[in-house]
Simulated scan of single mutants.
Amino acid sequence: MHITRKRPDTLRGPAENFTGTVWLDEIAAPAAPSRLRMFNVHFAPGAHTAWHRHPHGQVLHVLEGEGLVQRRGGEAESIRAGDTVWIEPGEWHWHGAAPRSFMTHLAVVEAAEDGTTVEWHEHVTDYPA
């Protein structure tokens, strides 16, 4: 067992992967053989990810606020505090805050054998207003 009492510094979401103001807090990145990665992600109103996918899928659990999530080819769907979203392995998607609301979610992924957790693509061009 290991208890972490000091968290890594909060990091700003890089502009190449996010639109708007996003803050990332690493919650879990245990040593091998574990491949679990967990972040607490804080989105300002209208902030969101670029299109991306995960080799083993992703779980999002909304802690507060309202947001949106969309899979490629589908409609943007509303998500709210208490909602949990399962995103299939390899499924292109984006997620973030609703246009007029902050949103915080836990993001849980499993790294691939080579250590990668995400493949980033282009920015969202038709974000709902």
Results as ranks from 00 to 15, higher is better:
Met1Leu: 11
Ile3Thr: 15
Ile3Glu: 11
Thr4Arg: 06
Thr4Met: 08
Arg5Glu: 09
Arg5Asp: 11
Arg7Val: 13
Arg7Gln: 10
Pro8Leu: 04
Pro8Ala: 02
Asp9Ser: 15
Thr10Arg: 05
Leu11Arg: 13
Arg12Met: 15
Arg12His: 15
Pro14His: 03
Ala15Pro: 15
Glu16Lys: 08
Glu16Gly: 14
Asn17Gly: 09
Phe18Arg: 00
Thr19Trp: 07
Gly20Asp: 02
Thr21Met: 06
Thr21Glu: 10
Trp23Ser: 07
Leu24Ile: 11
Glu26Val: 12
Ala28Lys: 04
Pro30Val: 03
Ala31Trp: 08
Arg35Ala: 14
Arg35Phe: 07
Arg37Tyr: 06
Met38Asn: 03
Met38Cys: 10
Phe39Asn: 04
Asn40His: 11
Val41His: 01
Phe43Glu: 00
Ala44Glu: 04
Ala44Lys: 01
Gly46Pro: 09
Ala47Glu: 02
His48Cys: 03
Thr49Lys: 00
Ala50Pro: 15
Ala50Asp: 07
Ala50Gln: 05
Arg53Ala: 13
Arg53Thr: 15
Pro55Gln: 04
His56Thr: 09
Gly57Lys: 03
Gly57Tyr: 00
Gly57Thr: 03
Gly57Met: 07
His61Ala: 05
His61Leu: 15
Val62Glu: 03
Val62Asn: 02
Glu66Met: 12
Gly67Asp: 04
Leu68His: 00
Leu68Ser: 02
Leu68Trp: 01
Val69Thr: 04
Gln70Met: 11
Gln70Pro: 12
Arg71Val: 12
Arg71Leu: 12
Arg71Gly: 14
Arg71Met: 14
Arg72Ser: 07
Gly73Trp: 07
Gly74Pro: 08
Gly74Asn: 10
Gly74Tyr: 08
Glu75Asn: 09
Glu75Tyr: 03
Ala76Thr: 05
Ala76Cys: 06
Glu77Asn: 07
Ser78Ala: 11
Ile79Tyr: 00
Ile79Asp: 00
Arg80Gln: 14
Ala81His: 03
Gly82Leu: 09
Thr84His: 05
Thr84Tyr: 04
Val85Ala: 03
Val85Trp: 03
Trp86Pro: 12
Trp86Lys: 13
Ile87Pro: 10
Glu88Ser: 11
Glu91Ser: 04
Glu91Gln: 14
Glu91Val: 14
Trp92Thr: 09
His95Thr: 05
His95Tyr: 05
Gly96Trp: 00
Ala98Asn: 01
Ala98Cys: 13
Ala98Gly: 08
Pro99Ser: 01
Pro99Leu: 01
Arg100Phe: 09
Ser101His: 05
Ser101Met: 12
Phe102His: 10
Phe102Ile: 09
Thr104Phe: 06
Ala107Glu: 01
Val108Gly: 01
Val108Met: 12
Val109Glu: 08
Glu110Pro: 13
Glu110Asp: 12
Ala111Gly: 14
Gly115Ser: 04
Gly115Val: 11
Gly115Asp: 06
Thr116Phe: 07
Thr116Asp: 10
Val118Trp: 01
Val118Gln: 04
Val118Met: 06
Val118Thr: 12
Glu122Arg: 14
Glu122Ile: 12
Glu122Leu: 14
His123Ser: 13
Thr125Trp: 01
Asp126His: 05
Asp126Phe: 12
Ala129Val: 12
Ala129Ser: 15
